[in-house]
Amino acid sequence: MRPLNLDTILIVRTDRNLHAALHGVARREGTTASALVRRAVASIIAPEDPPQPPPPVTPAAALPVAA
C-alpha cells in the first residue's frame, strides 16, 4: 500500500479544551491528532463528492510608486 501524500495543510481553530481533548483521545488510541482530524473529515465526505479544483490564483496588482 502506498503511503498517503500529505502535502496540503488545513488550519482548524479550536478552543484549548477541545485541543487538549483531541490530543488526549489521540494518545489513548495510539495515533496522532492529525490522523483523528483526517478521519473525522473523511467520515463526513460522501464518496460521490467530486474533488474540486483549487480556486485560481489572483495575480498581484502592480501599484505605482511615488517618486
Rank of each mutant, 00 (worst) to 15 (best):
T8G: 15
T8V: 13
T8Q: 15
T8W: 10
T8I: 11
I9T: 07
L10A: 04
L10H: 06
L10P: 00
L10R: 03
I11E: 09
I11Q: 04
V12G: 00
V12D: 05
V12W: 06
V12H: 03
V12Y: 03
R13Y: 10
R13K: 12
T14A: 15
T14V: 14
D15T: 01
D15K: 05
R16P: 06
R16E: 14
R16M: 08
N17Y: 08
N17C: 13
N17M: 08
L18T: 05
L18Y: 08
H19R: 02
A20P: 02
A20R: 11
A21Y: 00
A21D: 06
A21H: 03
A21Q: 06
L22K: 01
L22A: 02
L22Q: 08
L22G: 02
L22R: 02
L22M: 05
H23P: 00
H23R: 03
H23M: 09
G24D: 11
G24P: 00
V25K: 11
V25Y: 04
A26K: 00
A26S: 07
A26P: 01
A26C: 05
R27Y: 11
R27T: 10
R27I: 09
R27P: 07
R28D: 05
R28E: 04
R28G: 12
E29C: 03
E29G: 01
E29S: 06
G30N: 06
T31Y: 10
T31E: 06
T32G: 09
T32V: 07
T32S: 12
A33M: 11
A33H: 04
S34C: 09
S34L: 02
S34R: 01
A35F: 12
A35T: 01
A35Q: 06
A35D: 00
A35Y: 12
L36F: 08
L36E: 01
L36H: 01
V37F: 14
V37P: 00
R38Q: 07
R38M: 14
R38T: 09
R38S: 11
R39T: 04
A40G: 01
A40E: 07
V41I: 12
V41S: 15
V41M: 14
I44W: 14
I44C: 15
I44E: 15
I44S: 14
A46Q: 11
P47M: 13
P47D: 10
E48D: 13
D49W: 08
D49K: 02
P50F: 12
P50S: 13
P51S: 06
P51W: 10
P51K: 00
P51V: 12
P51I: 12
P51N: 12
Q52Y: 08
P53H: 05
P53C: 11
P53T: 01
P53E: 12
P54E: 03
P54T: 12
P55S: 04
P55L: 09
P55C: 07
P56S: 04
P56L: 10
P56G: 06
P56T: 09
V57L: 14
V57D: 10
V57E: 10
T58Q: 04
T58F: 04
P59R: 09
A60F: 09
A61S: 15
A61M: 12
A61I: 05
A61R: 08
A61F: 11
A62L: 14
A62Q: 06
A62I: 02
